[in-house]
């Protein structure tokens, strides 16, 4: 089953069909989500209009965690079953996840100043999300730190698995320790403690963010696969034209 989609050529065919649909629904969800978030939803009884920051902050935080979980899963699949697409997908997802994490931290800081009275505190939730950002940056750096890209991918995959222990820490930090950050409102035992009028824009934005992730991920995987094919073709061409020149590197023009 997994092997069916691990074939790069078949993946490219499927991705070419799926991507425009995802992009269209993503645009619709983001447009509707932003409209409801800014114009068609009430202010909060405590936070006033500042609550609208949450409609970007929370989906970004969810996607930061989701992207990392996806990377860790792909890393495990790549390490164990050596699927040709797994490391490509993991590498393609890392910068997107890093961007979501940065958005989450920036918007959280903007919310924290008026509400808590501070841009930043070193509580368990905020610190563990900052560690997540550094993990993402480490994945990107480690992947490109080797001349041999296979070894870089392997090393980054191990780091991705090691860093996965941070995910439950982030999720449950607000329950295990007392933090300045509030506990979960949506995904919790006993149902959400957020009014439906505010849950609607939040879920619309979350759907938009998820589809945005899928679309950008597909674009990045496709371009990486095409770049690899191009490299292979050029190499083969160089070998065919002048076998001795191929050892000097890619100097075709």
């Amino acid at each position: 089953m997994l092997h069916r989609f691990a074939n790069p050529a078949r993946f490219l065919r499927i991705a070419a069909v799926v991507q425009p649909w995802c992009a269209a629904i993503c645009a619709l969800a983001l447009a509707a989500g932003l409209y409801v978030a800014f114009f068609a939803s009430p202010p909060d009884y405590q936070q006033g209009e500042t609550v609208r920051i949450m409609y970007v902050h929370v989906p970004a935080a969810w996607m930061a965690l989701f992207a990392y979980a996806a990377i860790a899963l792909a890393a495990a699949v790549g390490l164990i079953w050596r699927h040709p697409l797994a490391f490509v997908a993991a590498g393609a997802a890392a910068p997107i996840g890093a961007a979501f994490t940065a958005i989450c931290l920036a918007t959280g800081s903007l919310w924290g100043k008026p509400m808590w009275g501070t841009w930043w505190v070193w509580d368990a939730r905020l610190t563990s999300v900052l560690v997540l950002l550094f993990l993402y940056l480490g994945l990107i750096a480690l992947r490109h730190a080797f001349d041999d890209s296979d070894r870089g991918e392997r090393a980054a995959a191990v780091l991705a698995l090691v860093g996965a222990v941070n995910l439950p820490i982030i999720k449950f930090s607000v329950d295990w320790w007392n933090t300045l950050h509030q506990p979960a409102s949506v995904v919790k035992i006993g149902g959400p403690t957020i009014h439906p009028a505010m849950l609607t824009p939040l879920l619309l934005m979350a759907a938009g963010f998820m589809l945005f992730f899928v679309v950008v991920l597909l674009i990045r995987i496709r371009s990486e696969l095409l770049a690899r094919r191009l490299r292979a073709l050029r190499l083969a061409q160089a070998h065919a034209a002048e076998p001795a020149a191929a050892t000097r590197g890619p100097v075709l023009g």
Partner: peptide, 18 residues
């Protein structure tokens, strides 16, 4: 020397709270 407000996990419109 520093006081921070802690927000809880409840989000609702003012009318609902009232």
């Amino acid at each position: 020397d520093e006081v921070l407000a802690k927000h809880d996990e409840n989000y609702m419109p003012p009318e609902v709270a009232n």
